[in-house]
Amino acid sequence: MIRPADREKRLGLITAYYGAPEALLGEYAAGNARQRMRTFTQSAEDEISRAVEELRRIPCRGELCSPADDSAIIIHGPRGCAMAGGDSGTKLTEKDSIMGSEKKLRAEIHRVYNASRPKRIFVVTTPVVAINNDDVLTVCAELTGSLGIDILPVVTTGFKNKSPENGIDYARRALGLDAAAEIREPEASAREGLLAGRRVYIALPPGRAAAYIRAVSSGSGGNIAGVTLGYADKTEATEEVLRLLAGLGLPVHVANNQDYELTNLLKSAVPDLFVGETDNVLTAARLGIACVNVSVTPPEAFADAAETALGYSGFARRLAEAPGMPARYSLRALLRPGGWYIKPEAKL
């Protein structure tokens, strides 16, 4: 199987929850964690862009790819799909959607090969290619043979499942790595007493969240003000975070880049420091909260980055108060609790 099993099925992954961590722990223990419904959802990253991001990460061992890396990523889809972040795209048109897109793909692989002689080329597929069931595997296999480099298909569809995390598995499968292997997140650096008396909000996927919670609380003496998990699943990392929150008497929020929900939660949690990835960091910074962006800060530099952010917290505040910074939500919208739009699944 070229397509790894969905995390929703394999790991009981859910992307919407707000409430007691104990209840969610109970659901996972009983093997029946239910996806909640979001009656208002903001669009966020999808599996295709996440797969591309992962392709850039893996070959360079955790850092974002440098141009020196000898691979090229072709987004196989209409012009707009190149927004997913590839190096080039097949720019499929209506004609290709009717007559098949094989010819365009062959041509683009040849073009990229001749232009930059990469060591390998990834072909990332998109909804149009998936709906038409265009044959990508044969093209990749044939050109791998004739060009003598690896042409690796990444068979994302963009619509088969809800969680962008599946993109990571597609990328790993394309590279011949074990898609189901649990990836151990590296520990983040800590310094005793650094965060004493400080309230820290963490918004990260479970593995990273667990690592940063440890660095913040037991490592640096900070208090956890709240946690937003990008998703929850039946892995040990989720369990660790949920147990920790239960011990602190805090609710858990599960959301993938839901800006509105996070804004409301941060407004009531009032943390001194926010630790998250780029999209969420932008949300926190708009509220004047000092931030550490773990998308660009390597884990070993976390303690220094936290110290710097707190030391210059006036910067974040002034940024939020700058006249050019428009308010994102009306005051009335902000009176709603953060979990307002998350409901138990309603069967229609």
Binding site: D96, G100, N132, D135
Partner: peptide, 16 residues
């Protein structure tokens, strides 16, 4: 007309 069997999308071809 339309695509050869097994590729593309004949239905979209009809509308085009």
């Amino acid at each position: 007309g339309g695509p050869v069997p097994g590729v593309g999308c004949a239905g979209r071809g009809i509308s085009a």
